[in-house]
Design a protein around this nucleic acid. Structure first.
Lengths: 230, 230
DNA sequence: CTGTTTTAGTGACGCTTCGTCAACTTCACC
DNA sequence: GGTGAAGTTGACGAAGCGTCACTAAAACAG
């Protein structure tokens, strides 16, 4: 869908070059405007106005505001999905599977923080979460990997659909919280999520002090890889 | 903000009665239209068209589509929050706290399925999740309850903020999946989430058969209240 | 019961955005 | 250089937005 190599592999031609350029221009403008105004308040005109192009041109590339928003998210999804797959495919234990998944995800979120924030930014206290087809496909991949791991005997024979949902829920919600902390650390978030999935609340890392202060930056006792319950 | 009882407590007066009636009419129409068209595709005009009222009247009650959508969600939030608080306040153990929270939540979602679906319904494969101030307040309550439980020694001294986020993430994501199953059962979802939080993946209920079939309705071995790890 | 005040409903209005499309420009190929 | 295809442009009609002067009627006062 990107470059039409039907005729000649080299010399993309001016037409194809400006086409790619325009698409990129519009996407960049959209990212910027979404981050500025939030998804709800942004109009297609706002995006085009942040561009030297005419309004009609927008519709040569995307059908609607919704579609360009999807495209932005799909880019992120396509970037992270292979990493997650690889991490899980080489896992030889439940620990590796779970901790690899969370670590990779939180590190990606932290590295692509700008996109992530742009996507979430919204008016007032309202957050919008959109699951595009590409993102949903990522969920399905996780479920397939879980089913394969169960078949291999790595995981006990549990409800893979619910387990996938639980992992996804924790991943997104913790990512949100992690970014909200001034010094949010992907490793810390991953350690928390991993410990939870391996040993439940009793296996979670303990804080040293600062009880009753929810927003404090937590120090945890390092309970190495193993999620032993107390 | 609701009823002006400044003068007389009884005989609400015709003015106040039609006011309440109109508000209710508009909210009912909105619920219906949101469920029909999805949030994104719905316009304020669609809502008032489903009503005998004039367009200007809408703005006497709500400032925008966003605000009425919030109002609908806040109604749900206000209905469930007291139940959750009570359930958690009387918990004498980690098990009771966790299982009470999830059971109450999933039962509510199943009972109010219509609202829940109306809120989620959207064009295509896109899901929108909005966290209104009332809903966020519910999250804060959960965190406070967790902090109180930690102070009481019920929970180990863990990161209450992350634990709250994890519970929220699992609750919403599992609820979504539960409704998607033709025979989704709140008790089953609650059992799954509770086991996960008490003992991690190794403590999850085991399926009897049907491996490799993600959409199958799961039968679990009943590992009673206690989330023992294998 | 009548006159006055206060409150809320109405729908037309000016404004913005939407998505389209005929005319025009630019590139590719002969 | 000429011709056709591809892509850009901005104006257009349709529709939604939020407002506001106007009207109806409930509440209140005498």
């Amino acid at each position: 869908m990107d470059t039409q190599l039907a005729r000649l592999p080299r010399t993309p031609g001016k037409r194809d070059r400006t086409k790619a350029q325009n698409r990129h221009t519009i996407l960049a403008a959209a990212r910027h405007v979404f981050a500025e105004l939030g998804y709800g308040a942004t109009t297609v005109r706002d995006i085009i106005r942040a561009t030297p192009l005419a309004s009609g041109t927008f519709y040569n590339y995307f059908r609607s505001k919704e579609e360009i928003f999807q495209a932005i998210q799909d880019e992120s999804a396509l970037r992270i999905r292979p990493r997650l797959r690889e991490e899980r495919s080489k896992a030889e234990s439940v620990e590796a599977f779970i901790s690899g998944t969370f670590r990779t995800f939180f590190e990606y979120v932290a590295s692509d923080e700008h996109s992530f924030r742009a996507i979430r930014r919204n008016t007032d206290a309202i957050r919008v979460r959109m699951d595009t087809p590409e993102i949903i496909a990522g969920f399905e991949e996780l479920r397939e990997d879980l089913e394969a791991a169960i078949a291999r005997g790595l995981f006990p024979p549990v409800d893979a659909d619910y387990l996938m949902a639980a992992i996804v829920g924790v991943a997104f919600e913790l990512a949100e919280r992690m970014l909200r902390r001034q010094c949010g650390d992907p490793a810390e978030a991953a350690a928390f999520a991993t410990a939870l999935f391996l040993g439940g609340v009793r296996g979670l890392p303990h804080l040293h002090a600062a009880l009753g202060n929810g927003d404090a930056l937590p120090q945890e006792t390092n309970q190495d890889d193993n999620g032993s319950v107390s």
